[in-house]
Design a protein around this nucleic acid. Structure first.
Lengths: 334, 334
DNA sequence: ATTGGCACTCAGGGATGCTGAGTGCCAGGC
DNA sequence: GCCTGGCACTCAGCATCCCTGAGTGCCAAT
């Protein structure tokens, strides 16, 4: 029902509209692309495409613009991911190579993605549950309060303060630390729950309330809650006339971790790209291109860009894919 | 040259303009405020105020709006800081009380300030140089790479990876850690430089290259660079029709640490408020209300809000002052 | 199936005119 | 000397109108 030429017309409409921001008409289409037919023919094709819901007219006697469905078809079948130029690859590499901590990697990745795509970039911190404990440190702040620091094998450092039910002697804290490190060192955080259950045996009864407080913070607070940390950047790119009305919604979504997580979508295998278009994102007129990244074949988190529905999908997909790969590599080394 | 009534007129103009966003004329002034004179009198006063540069007409036959100079006078002499309601105080307290790590305190503070003022909130991390070392941890990642974790007495945790010139045995790393902790524990970071210089003596010659690498990261990277970390939030509040044109500039400024630091201004004594208006901020049409906060009389960092020049200064000042105090208290306890 | 021709539609951009809020100035009153 | 009422003047904003040009849909001819 959609022959070659009609698909070509749709592709041309998407490309033109993305670059000009204006409804594209039959005449300019034949001019700008090497279509060897007359405008009238194109008009017939466009009528069919409109009937099928791929394009619409904003008003009578205007050109056509793609619908979400039109972009969908474009992304799925009519476009190919645009590979990065060698200059861009080099820029990515040098930009990320200078990072000296996990925070630094994430921060730089956000800036990089935002710059490459000229959109808002979103990066999720690597998941803790898949990483292993390298070291646990307990530092007493006051007699009834300790600082718990968790260091994982992928270089992530998490901290939390724990309020103890009883005042604790320095020795008992030292003992607790020793026990924790002895039992958890090298273990996956996702397995930690079982391991911790066994631990109680090794703690003197008098210390158990305190130990329990530390355990629960370790499990709940660190493993679960912080797992969802997501940062964003490049909001200045929203100031373009895009998002004329939805701007506030977009900015609010960005500052809401939960929404941000949902935007990045379900976990997928590394470097598989996910594209959500328009209504699929839950945000009016916005699209999200995202990918999982990870070290050594294991997906640990996601990153992506958010832009107007009318965005350069091939370019964004290329950038997201490339950055996801490089970040995975960097993390793998660390 | 400016009698009581003229000042009252200026105050009324600022208040009305801030709340209505529209140039205010002589008639509406006498109506809305209890001025016992005729519009004509007000007009004469306004003519004087305009001549002195406190107000302008956007165009002939429109009302007046305050100039930067007008806002300045308003802030300095015509307004008083609006104290928080008890409900607001309670909200601040409960909102900040739940924080369990320094990151958490900062994140919550940003959200809180943004919500209270309906502006963009900016918070600088507490300075490291004034705080003391509580613990230093070295964790080897690979033979030639260690993770350095620094824990300070105000609960801040800093991390960095160090590339070693030579491969290091686990024992030598353990030794280095012991030496570092023995010598730096309890010392101010600002004094650390001298202390570290002495340290070299206690390290075997063969280990000195590695130790040097660790020292330099410890001093440079942690104490200096990260000191300037600033976070912001509440950008959705920019979506109001304010900043119609300068939006992009503002968003760009927010993502540039250096600019952000400049906006917060020079250090000052705790809870002394700084107000920068319009051109003083370097941003078109923007104003910044900021304050230093700190634990125990010592200023450690600044926080504030950024909004349109036409903002509710008394309210913003009240919120900034209150939040700065509470944050200082929280940090003092930790 | 494609094409040229033709009538039709309508957003966007001036041009025009009106209205109302607001001003400046002046002459008279306290 | 300061305040006030009156009056003429200005001009942004809004509505109205018109025109143009890009773009369409349809149809008959190829």
């Amino acid at each position: 029902m959609l022959d070659e030429r009609k698909l070509a017309v749709l592709r041309a409409i998407v490309e033109d509209y993305v670059s000009t921001t204006e409804p594209v008409g039959s005449k300019s289409l034949v001019d700008r692309h090497g279509l060897d037919v007359s405008p009238a023919t194109i008009r017939n094709d466009m009528a069919v495409l409109e009937e099928q819901g791929f394009i619409v007219q904003p008003h009578t006697s205007a050109g056509r613009i793609p619908t979400d469905k039109g972009y969908r078809l474009f992304v799925d079948r009519l476009s190919s991911i645009k590979p990065m130029s060698t200059a861009e690859r080099r820029a990515i590499e040098t930009f990320l190579a200078g990072a000296c901590s996990l925070d630094d990697v994430v921060t730089r990745t956000v800036r990089l993605l935002a710059q490459l795509t000229r959109q808002v970039a979103v990066v999720q911190y690597p998941s803790l549950s898949r990483s292993a404990v390298r070291h646990i440190e307990l530092v007493s702040l006051t007699p009834q309060r300790v600082l718990l620091v968790l260091i994982t094998d992928n270089g992530r450092v998490e901290q939390a303060t724990v309020d103890l039910p009883d005042a604790a002697e320095p020795e008992s804290i030292a003992h607790l630390r020793a026990v924790l490190n002895a039992c958890l060192d090298g273990h996956r955080l996702s397995d930690a729950a079982k391991t911790v259950a066994v631990l109680a045996d090794r703690i003197p009864v008098s210390e158990r309330p305190n130990a329990g407080a530390v355990f629960s913070v370790l499990l709940d607070s660190l493993a679960d809650r912080h797992e969802e940390r997501v940062v964003f950047g490049g909001t200045a790119n929203l100031a373009a006339p895009d998002f004329s009305r939805g701007l506030r919604d977009v900015l609010e979504a960005l500052e809401e971790q939960v929404v941000l997580m949902r935007l990045l979508g379900e976990a997928a295998s590394p470097s598989a790209l996910t594209v959500r278009i328009g209504a699929e994102t839950g945000l009016e007129g916005a699209s999200v291109v995202s990918a999982a990244y990870g070290a050594g074949g294991q997906a640990v988190a996601k990153l992506g860009v958010l832009g107007p529905t009318r965005m350069d999908y091939p370019g964004a997909m290329g950038a997201v894919r490339a950055v996801a790969r490089y970040v995975g590599r960097i993390l793998g080394e660390a």
